[in-house]
Amino acid sequence: MGADIAAGRRSRTAQGLAAGAFLGPATCVVLVTMVAPLLLLARYSANRYSATDLMIEAVTPENYLRFFTDTFYLGVMRTTIGVAVLSTLLCVLFGLPLAWRLARMAPRWKGVCMLGVILPLFIGSTVRTVGWMILLARGGLMDIATTRLFATRLDLMFTPTAVIVGIVSFNLPYLVLTMQSVFDRVDVQLEQAAQALGAPPVRAFWRVVWPLVLPGVAIAAVMCFILSMNAYATPVLLGGPRFQMMAPLLYWEFGTNNNWPFAAALAFILMGTTLLLTVFANMLIPRRYRA
């Protein structure tokens, strides 16, 4: 008996070592490529800006204080959160039925439809945004269509609507793909069983399928939210210079003003806010449904 326990322990130790050996290289890569730059960025965010020396070594909270004491920057954060929440809600609203339908589709058509969903991802986000610019600009397709049909001009470029449309179109494929695989794992017989016991389809979905897919939907929505919070090309090109979100503001400080310490602080504030809101959103999901 004692020998069995010892053998079991040895085997567990060996398994642990093997797992460590396999995980080691990947952990090293993550540490070097992700954690190290973040630490460097954190260090920069405590430095002082200098027009001549780029930055002066210091340990000061002034870059963070500048953000939190200036209503302008807080307003930019509010806009960013508003756009991210709205576009995530729209993505879930549009993506949910699409993903459900895809998951329940006959395999023959599913392949074709999946390709249709993935196809936009073959094109870079900037190129897709340029496509939206052509559609939404004055003299563009939308403008021509509304002028001909309703005799009114439709100037959507450089409006919040254009930004949200752009972000939703960019994030939707990711959300549909994630949720489709979640729906795929839910046994269709469960729905059939619920319906056989007298539940109409909507009730069967709501009482049986929804609790099972909720953790997956939450993950997809969080991914969508993170992508929206960090959107850069869409707000710049479709929102124009007057529509300010955090990522373009960060780039302005980094690329136009060369103020690396403040840009680094903005990066951390954006990352921290996204993380906090993600944790908060997770708390809203009932504990029994969490992943």
């Binding site: 004055r138 450089f158 090109l237 124009g240 210079p241």
Partner: peptide, 18 residues
């Protein structure tokens, strides 16, 4: 005043009437 994100994007508006 209208502001454009890039130099190139400020050209076509003269054609479209913007």
């Amino acid at each position: 005043l209208k502001l454009y994100p890039t130099t190139d994007s400020a050209g076509p508006p003269y054609k479209s009437g913007e």
